[in-house]
């Protein structure tokens, strides 16, 4: 890879009100990667993602998109390059899946260009890609958690951006729906998009990521190929958890097995 990546942050100081989350933080998102950010609660991983998505303005430092300060670019132009699945969003009462997904076309529309043939095609495609096409006319608030998350991802997809950020896309979902969403992400990555996701589950992160960023206390502990960086030492350093690493029997990627802290319980008769 040559030159600077399309998205990255330099010397970021990130803060809410008076609480400083990170200082002097620098990250690069390799082009074409499926980058996953991991770390313990309150380590600043979601805050970093918000800064990269420009929904949080850094107190100092710069987020660079294609070499320019992201806050100096027109909001709609950024929205045609960079999409975000926020951690929490609100579906207005009674909004249908099709209506929600079509709102992803906002940065491509205008007062006199409200619904082009292109808009219609992209929305249909986005719903098909995420498997919500048959739910198009259902109200979002009647869907299951997994379906709702896929509808929101479809809205982000309808923006047709080469870069897509996902803030904890699997939180609140049961394990089957978690895998469903992650498989969808992997598919989107294979189609050529650059993805950045914040995940809680180290095992899933190691399985799906092509590039892993491990954070603790607002700084990057290490980053790189998960098969190389996920070690027992790293898990100890980042999470303070003694563990063993074994190979995932399905994929061969690192699987974190927490160390037993008491003798194994023998099965009862």
């Amino acid at each position: 890879m040559s030159g600077n990546p399309r998205l990255g942050g330099v010397g970021l100081t990130l803060a809410y009100e008076r609480r400083i989350v990170a200082e002097g933080l620098s990250v690069d998102v390799p082009d074409g990667s499926f980058t996953v950010v991991i770390g313990p609660n309150a380590c600043g991983k979601s805050t970093l993602l918000r800064a990269l998505a420009r929904t949080l303005r850094p107190r100092a430092g710069t987020v660079l998109l294609d070499g320019r300060d992201i806050h100096s670019l027109p909001s709609r132009a950024v929205a045609r390059t960079l999409g975000l699945l926020p951690q929490s969003s609100v579906a207005p009462d009674g909004i249908t899946v099709a209506d929600l997904v079509s709102r992803g076309r906002y940065p491509h529309q205008g007062l006199l260009r409200q619904w082009s043939a292109e808009d219609e095609r992209v929305v249909a495609e986005s719903m098909a890609d995420t498997g919500v096409a048959e739910l198009a006319d259902r109200p979002v608030d009647e869907l299951s958690g997994g379906q709702r998350q896929r509808a929101w991802i479809a809205m982000a997809l309808a923006q047709r951006t080469p870069l897509l950020l996902l803030d904890e896309p699997t939180t609140w979902l049961d394990i089957a729906h978690q895998v469903e969403v992650l498989e969808l992400c992997a598919r989107l990555h294979e189609q050529g998009r650059t993805l950045v996701a914040v995940l809680h589950d180290l095992h899933q992160a190691a399985r799906y990521a092509t590039h892993l960023i491990a954070m603790r206390d607002g700084r990057v502990v290490t980053s790189g190929d998960p098969r190389e960086v996920v070690t027992a030492d790293l898990v100890q350093e980042v999470f303070g958890l003694p563990c063993r690493i074994v190979a995932d029997p399905e994929t061969g990627t690192p699987l974190v097995v927490p160390a037993a802290r008491r003798p194994a319980i023998s099965p009862r008769r």
Binding site: A53, P86, V90, P107, W152
Partner: peptide
């Protein structure tokens, strides 16, 4: 009415609206 579409978008939450390019 010029900001009408932006207003509809902000009903999705600030983050979703900003991400979609609403000022």
């Amino acid at each position: 009415f010029g900001y009408g579409r932006a207003l509809s978008m902000t009903e999705l939450g600030d983050e979703a609206a900003i991400a979609a390019g609403v000022p």
